[in-house]
């Protein structure tokens, strides 16, 4: 589910902006750190869960406004260089601000420990994350499918020229899309913090998987990203159960094979 959430955010950015966003993982990490900091400061996990991703979205807004905005016309190579540089800056800043040593942040009291589902034990907090991620994905889908602005954004993925010809401020739309992508990365990070704790390397760890999810789902195909996130999660779990050593290879192998057979991704339209 988390993979789906990460993939969804990245898919928004890559699909609408057509940019390989290598800073997506760093935004994820910032979300996690912000959550822990705010939660400790306020003493309230739920409030922090609300605030932290908004902080990341603001950061995304600033980044888009100051930098990414100038890159839409540039080649992928410069976009790559820029977002990679950004990722370096963000993750080194995390070390400068919060220190190089990782730490743990526990789930709120009522979500601690495991739950016996009959066939297996499963942590309560993870169940909560599943539900929360599911709701978020549903909300994003509602926004894109049922609201006017969502429709415009979907149209933007299909055909940017047409949208701008219709007199819609496409630059504004790009900004919103990037901020939304950042928000989704931030909330994925915030939800992950109690599961995986905090450490400066958590961003890059997640980035590779997010890229796989996007490529599998098809660029700009949001439902595809969701489905691909679930598939990757299940594939990894299955492989880990039977052949643990290969659990990291498998996601890339799956991706390579699928892209060779179906270059547009599983559900890609382009």
């Amino acid at each position: 589910m988390l993979y789906a959430l990460m993939g969804l955010g990245l898919s928004l950015v890559t699909g609408i902006l057509n940019i390989p966003n290598f800073a997506h993982g760093a935004l994820f990490a910032v979300g996690a750190y912000l959550l822990a900091t705010v939660a400790v400061a306020l003493g309230n996990f739920w409030l922090a869960l609300l605030i932290a991703p908004l902080g990341v979205a603001l950061l995304g807004l600033a980044i888009e406004y100051a930098g990414i905005r100038r890159l839409y016309a540039a080649g992928h190579d410069y976009q790559l260089l820029f977002t990679f540089g950004l990722a370096l800056i963000l993750s080194e800043s995390i070390i400068l601000i919060w220190g190089p040593i990782g730490s743990s942040y526990l789930p709120p009291e009522i979500l601690r420990g495991g739950m016996d589902l009959g066939f297996t034990m499963y942590p309560k907090y993870r169940l909560f994350v599943m539900v929360a991620a599911g709701l978020l994905i549903f909300a994003t889908w509602l926004f894109l499918e049922k609201t006017r602005y969502g429709a415009i954004m979907r149209a933007g993925i299909e055909n940017k020229e047409m949208v701008s010809l219709l007199g819609i401020d496409i630059r504004m739309m790009f900004t919103v899309a990037f901020a939304m992508g950042a928000y989704l990365a931030g909330i994925a990070g915030a939800l992950t913090a109690p599961i995986r704790g905090l450490n400066p390397g958590m961003g890059p760890d997640m980035l590779g998987i997010a890229f796989v999810v996007v490529a599998l789902g098809g660029l700009g195909n949001l439902l595809g990203a969701i489905a691909a996130g679930l598939i990757i999660g299940v594939a990894q779990a299955l492989v880990a159960a039977y052949w643990t050593e290969a659990s990291t290879v498998v996601i890339y192998a799956v991706m390579a094979v699928i892209l060779l057979v179906r270059p547009q991704g599983l559900f890609g339209i382009r």
Binding site: M121, Y122, R126, M202, D205, Q236, A240, A241, S247
Partner: peptide, 20 residues
């Protein structure tokens, strides 16, 4: 006895097996 790759961050599958 399960082996995990160096740098593993997703332990849920291993732990699930251990719990079982």
């Amino acid at each position: 006895a399960d082996r995990h790759p160096l740098g593993e961050r997703e332990f849920s599958n291993y732990v699930q097996k251990a719990a079982a």
